[in-house]
Design a binder for these strands. Sequence first.
RNA 1: GGGGAGUUAGUUCAGCUGGUUAGAACGUCGGCCUGUCACGCCGAAGGUCAGGGGUUCAAGUCCCCUACUCCUCGCCA
Length: 608
Amino acid sequence: MKRTHSCGALRASDINQSVVLFGWVQNRRDHGELIFIDLRDRDGLTQIVFDPNVNKEAHALAEQMRSEWVIGVQGKVRSRGMQWNKKENKEVSATNPNLATGEIEVVVSDATVFNRSETPPFQISEHVTASEELRLEHRYLDLRRSNLQATLITRSKMNALTREYMVKQGFLELETPYMGKYTPGGARNFLVPSRLNPGKFYALAESPQLYKQLFMVAGFDRYYQIVKCFRDEDLRLDRQPEFTQIDVEMSFVSQDDVFGIIEGLIKKLWGEILKVDVPTPFRRMDFYESMEKYGNDKPDLRFGLEHVVLTDLIKAQGAAAGVPMMEEAVEKGGIVKAMCIPAQYPLSRAESDKLEEYVKGMGAGGLARAKVGETGEWTQSPLAKTINPTLRQAINAKCGAKPGDLLLFQFGREAQVHTIMANLRVHVAKKLKLIPEYGSGGVWNFLWVVNPPLFEFDEETKTWAAAHHAFTRPHDDCVQYLETDPGKVKCWRYDVVLNGFEIGGGSIRLHDPEVQGRVFKALGIGEKEAKEKFGFLLDALKFGAPPHGGIALGMDRLAMLLSNAESLRDVIPFPKTQKGTDLMTCAPGDVDEKQLRDLSVKSTVAPK
RNA sequence: GGGGAGUUAGUUCAGCUGGUUAGAACGUCGGCCUGUCACGCCGAAGGUCAGGGGUUCAAGUCCCCUACUCCUCGCCA
């Protein structure tokens, strides 16, 4: 027997053809005489019928068949249009409109069993939801489910479309090493001990960042790569220790050129995969605006509930404000933020108490609330009695609060207030069903977040640190502040955001050695240290480096959003758990003493 | 490292303020059935209540520890 069709191929136009199908038994419906089996492969389902009047042996074999057996059948394609129904004593339509092949069935004249199957630990079905733990343990079975197959097929399409697009735009696909030199700063690296160089280690690349800049120095002009990256940080819903980037770098370009290329790519991916027309250019938002209104640099713009910063209002009232906790926060250099939940989305006392629990989980002291009354007075709030009425009206006005609205407040350390309010905003939006729990809801709000600061002040070490990396080009009109006021220096860094997910980020690089030296100085990195850490790149920049810049898109996140998946794990064939383990292979695993000796490595963990 | 949720039949879950034999659905196995399509009907088997310790006359249920899974803060330039 040789397979003639896939299980998703046959249509009414194939009726009367003799065909051979191979596949897995999805489902068996035994009527004593007739036996129906849904035969499955990655292309779809086809109903096959065993009739003892057609072939007794095949029918007997079908009585034995069970879920997930791998079989082959030969037979004739027959219409399911009108079939004799004994119960009703007349011909009745038996088509299945839920199936692409529902117009037809294959009457089996010959059948072979290629392999039997044990009863699987969970049913291979879209209807049954086994726990993720069990599914990961038997990932090869989970991957038989059609929705997981669909996401991986979508990924494959993304790869093909990306390559097609990038090649057409004149990009070269160039490879970079995974095993490189450890560079401090940034994400924690996975280390690989070197057997040939005892005591020394490679680091797995957290991104091809430095290499792709060297490609520009070498004159390749336009580089891209679909590449694995490795980061040894804690996992999240949208973070895996190994993940894939669409990595891009270009010479002689401005920020707008990079945006144009990426907008074109996303337009193509969304257009061809989802048949959705994404309008370009994308909206742009200043980093500071994003922090102020949304509390982070990856705002979900599918809904409102914008934050309002009240710090200045409270400062202006001085000692007369009547909100001692907020005043104290402001005095200590912190900020005060509010969020207004409109009256049309009423929250019960129990619900708003739950919100308080939620923010406390993020380290908040509590969640101050105030219900706005008919004349702008506050009720149901500990602030109501003491607050200066002028301040209260000013806050109402600034928040656009109307009678019946609920105001939520956070105050304290700036970074923490932003984080808590950012998470609270999304949390509330989901609760109020302004956005779905996961997935786009059919709304695709792309956004560039631009002009962030080059440096961040590290509260712990009391020093300035690179907000992204030390090779980002500052705005020309900010270079003057490098020495005097580093916090004021904005740079050519950009993130592309979709529905609250950072799907990519990049920058225009710093190719001027003079400014580079000043940036290092601001970071407290001496010449010697810079040479040790980034020597090869700094050397390379001395030999005629073109102005260049680039970006990297998170391929897994794109795939997750494109296929409305709940988690990154659903678009990665073999993902890891939150502790970075693989439940199927049990990686990471033990190695024996000899292997360690060969690598000149000693474990400090006592053997069990 | 911190906070939260969870772990009961092969699977998904229920199991109240501690109380006699731990239930349901799906799956599995057996029987019946020529038009089903998540077929239907009848019957059966199936449990270390995650592991360990404690409180109690009595623990799936209360307490402590450990493991694992998920969400999250920190972290991810």
